[in-house]
Simulated assay, not measured.
Amino acid sequence: MTDNAIKLTNRVRPATRRPRLHKVILLNDDYTPREFVVTVLKSVFRINADQAQRIMVTAHQKGTCVVAVYTSEIAETRANAATDAGRQAGYPLTFTTEPDQ
């Protein structure tokens, strides 16, 4: 008789975690024109005009508004791009990020 033993091995799969998400937040200011805010929201965050208008109005009324939720790198990149667009146009338009619960 020959020994043809089958050897079983356990494969350990590494536990993958979902990346932590961050919120991009629009801060209201009294100087940036509303139309410019809508334009930046549409171009940087790729949202339609109706959504951009609602976000802008919410930020205007409440002081801040969550624009979108992304992974941390994408959130930082988009917030910086939107803030830079405001600065280049001479406005104090500001977007920030914070971790999502």
Rank of each mutant, 00 (worst) to 15 (best):
N48F: 05
M1Y: 10
R20M: 09
V40M: 07
P33N: 06
A81Q: 15
A89V: 09
N48D: 14
E98H: 05
V69A: 14
L8T: 13
T96Y: 00
N48Q: 08
N10P: 12
A85W: 07
S43W: 03
A79S: 04
D84Q: 15
M1K: 07
P92A: 04
P92K: 00
I47D: 02
V44M: 03
Q61K: 12
R11I: 13
V44L: 02
A52E: 05
L27Y: 09
A85V: 04
A59V: 05
D3L: 10
T83W: 03
A68R: 03
E76C: 10
T77P: 04
T97F: 13
Q51K: 10
T83P: 01
V38M: 08
E76N: 13
F95H: 00
N4L: 10
K42H: 05
F95T: 00
Q88P: 03
Q51N: 08
H60C: 06
T96D: 09
R17W: 12
A5F: 07
S72W: 15
L41F: 04
D100F: 10
A15H: 12
T39Y: 09
R17E: 15
R13P: 04
F95R: 00
V57W: 07
T94N: 09
G86K: 03
N28S: 08
T32P: 06
Y31G: 06
T2Q: 12
K42S: 03
L21D: 08
T64K: 02
R11N: 10
V44Y: 01
Q61N: 14
Q53T: 09
E98P: 08
N80G: 11
F95P: 01
A75P: 04
L41T: 06
A79D: 02
A59S: 08
R54M: 07
P99G: 14
F95L: 00
R13E: 13
S72G: 07
Y31I: 03
T97Y: 08
L21I: 08
F95C: 00
M1Q: 09
A79H: 06
A81E: 14
A75M: 06
R20F: 07
A81V: 05
Y31D: 11
Q61A: 11
R13I: 12
T16C: 10
A5R: 14
A82H: 06
H22G: 05
T97L: 11
D29G: 03
A75E: 08
V66D: 10
R87S: 09
F45K: 04
L8I: 13
A79C: 06
T2C: 07
T16L: 12
R54H: 11
R13C: 04
P14D: 13
P14L: 13
P92H: 03
N28T: 04
D84M: 15
V38S: 01
T71Q: 15
P14S: 12
A5I: 12
T32E: 03
A82E: 10
C65K: 05
R17L: 14
